[in-house]
Structures are given as structure tokens and as C-alpha cells.
Simulated assay, not measured.
Amino acid sequence: MIHLEHVTKEFAPKRGLFDVSFSVEPGMVFGFIGPNGAGKSTAIRQLMGLIRADSGHATIGGYDCWNQTEDVKRIVGYLPGEINLPGDFTGEQILHLMQKLHHSKPERQLELLERFPFETKTKIRKMSKGMKQKLALVGCFMKDAPVYLLDEPTSGLDPLMQERFLALIDEERQQGKAILMSSHHFPEMEKSCDRAALIKEGRLIIEADIHELVRSSRKQYTIEFGLGAHAEQFARQIGSERMQNQVSFVTTKQLTLNQVIRFLTEYDVRTIHSSADDLEHVFLHYYSEEESP
């Protein structure tokens, strides 16, 4: 449904997109993960036909994102990363305008306002960031489109609204929608995405099933020894540092867990604690690998 093929858009060295390819199929939530300036928003703007690629090809629903941008916009619900709406309009006026523009059902709007409630009669310029984000979410999803492009969708939302958003995303996925979601909020991506791509300086580092990404990460362990001397000796053995009777380390290809266990048979070990796998560890793992000489 969503396809980028070798798309390049260069603004400056290491700024833009460079030979980026990925696909999002119906019924899939695809996470686009990276820090600010990595190229996430550029990719989404390319898909929306807001900028033209230097090379490569992008389509949504078979429509060319640049040459058939009106057809693309007709089938896409778009949530930009920065919400810019007329300050003197009220939320009610904005939603009425969107409803007429997209021919959306009033029932859909009411249902979404129950999920993401805010004072619709407030003027945009008086709204908090969270209120603007809820207004944008309602406006985006009331279109009931087959494709959604969401740029930092939970920015400004409180934890309750974030959970409601994730529940909505799951419902939309089950209805066969194709969803591309950019974020650097790792827990929500891990909960909601089927696949993910990590991007740095406009280039994809890796793309994989979200659970495979987590499983492939390096894991951190902390071992508590009965004797400080044992902790010091073990730390020297694996090239790590100790803090009193504890030694922390990260498994690698050169230092596997099996090797560590063999070493530990020589010592008085009190506890072994492993950090929970999460997407943030994966992100840091691949970024640190990229930066290694």
C-alpha cells in the first residue's frame, strides 16, 4: 500500500533521505524510528507530495506521490509533526471544515471526541499543546482513510490519552489499514508496531520485524558477588568496571553469555540481574555500532 523505492532527497550532506526503501502493507503498523533531524518527517512529506525527491519513486495505493498527489491525499489520513492551524478558529470550526472537506461521518467524529475529549469551543491560539494534538488526531482519524501517515502522533498527550491512541491504532490495524508512524517514543512503538526501521542521518540502518529487532539487541547484565575481590577479578577478566561488589556488562559477539557463565563458576555469585529488552536498547545498540570506528 505504501512503497518507497530508493528515494533520495538531499538538503545538505547527511541531511535529507539517501536511497531509502521500505513498504507498508494493509493491516500493518510500520514504525519509523530516529532522533530529530534523522529524516523521518522528510520521508512522510515525500509520501504526501509536499516535496519532490531527487531520485527514486514513492507510491501510495498505486498512485505516484508527486504526480498524482491529489489521489494520494484523498486516501490518506495525515497527521503532521507540527500542528499549525488558524489561531482565531475554534476546534469546532476546524472539525466542521474537515468534515465537509473529507465527507466524513458525524458519528465518527463524535466517537473520536469521546476518546480524545477537549473543549471544542476554545480558540486554537488558547489551546494547550495537548489540546491541539487531540484536535489533530480527531481531524485525522475521522476521515476513516485506508492509509495513515502519523508524524510524532502522541506528542503532548498525557499517559491516558497515549493508551487510548494505541488502542485506536490496534483497531485500525485490525480493519486492514496501512499505518506509517514516526516517533522516538520507544514504548509506544514497541507496543503498536509490526515492523520498524531505524534511520540515522537520512539512511536506514536496519528494517525488521519489531520483535526480531528486540531479540537481536545486546543485553545488559549486572552481577553481584559475595566478595569485592571476586568482583574486581571478574571485571578485569571481561574488561569491565566494578562498583563495590557489582559488575555490569553488555553481551557481544566477543563476550557471550555462555562464556560469562563459564567464568562465573570460579566465583561466589549472589545475584544476576538482566535488563529488560526494549526498543530503546535496540536503538542505542545499532546507533553505537554505526558510530564505532
Rank of each mutant, 00 (worst) to 15 (best):
V147M: 06
F89D: 00
L110N: 13
V138E: 00
V147G: 00
K132A: 02
P117I: 02
L149P: 08
T90L: 08
H102P: 05
K105D: 12
V72K: 15
G77L: 14
P86N: 04
E107G: 15
H102E: 02
G87D: 01
N67I: 07
D64R: 10
L95K: 11
Q133C: 08
L110K: 14
L110Y: 12
D71E: 14
C140N: 06
E114R: 15
M127Y: 04
H102S: 09
T122W: 00
D71Y: 13
S104W: 05
Y148C: 08
K129H: 07
T122Q: 07
K100G: 08
M127E: 03
K105Q: 14
K73H: 13
K129S: 10
N67K: 14
P117K: 06
K129A: 08
S104R: 09
V147E: 01
M142D: 02
R115V: 06
L150M: 00
F118A: 03
K123G: 00
D64G: 12
N67F: 09
K123A: 03
N67W: 10
N67G: 08
G91L: 09
A145C: 04
V72A: 11
K134D: 00
Y78R: 13
P106K: 10
G91M: 13
H103G: 15
G87L: 05
K105P: 04
Y148R: 14
F118S: 01
L79A: 09
I75Y: 12
R108N: 07
L95S: 08
P86E: 02
K134E: 00
L85Q: 01
M142Y: 02
E114V: 10
R115P: 04
D151P: 06
R74H: 11
L110Q: 14
H102L: 15
Q99V: 05
I60M: 07
K129M: 12
P80L: 13
H96V: 10
P106F: 12
H102C: 13
K100R: 15
A145L: 04
I75A: 15
P80R: 12
Y148G: 10
K123W: 03
T69P: 09
M98P: 06
K123I: 00
L113A: 10
R74I: 09
L112Q: 03
H96Y: 12
S104N: 05
D88L: 09
G61D: 00
G87H: 03
T90Y: 06
S128L: 07
G81H: 10
I83W: 09
K73T: 04
K126A: 13
I83M: 07
C140P: 03
Q109H: 09
C140M: 06
D144Y: 08
N67Y: 10
E111G: 12
G77T: 07
M98S: 09
V138Y: 05
S128N: 06
K129P: 01
T122G: 02
Q93D: 06
L135N: 02
C65N: 07
E114K: 15
M127D: 02
E70S: 14
E70Q: 11
G61S: 08
D71V: 08
I124V: 14
L95Q: 05
P117F: 04
H103T: 06
K123P: 01
Y78A: 13
I83D: 02
V72Y: 11
L110D: 15
L135R: 08
N84A: 14
L101M: 07
H103S: 15
K123D: 01
G139A: 13
Q93V: 09
S128W: 04
E70A: 14
L135S: 05
V147L: 11
K132V: 02
I124G: 03
K121I: 01
L95R: 11
V147R: 10
I60V: 06
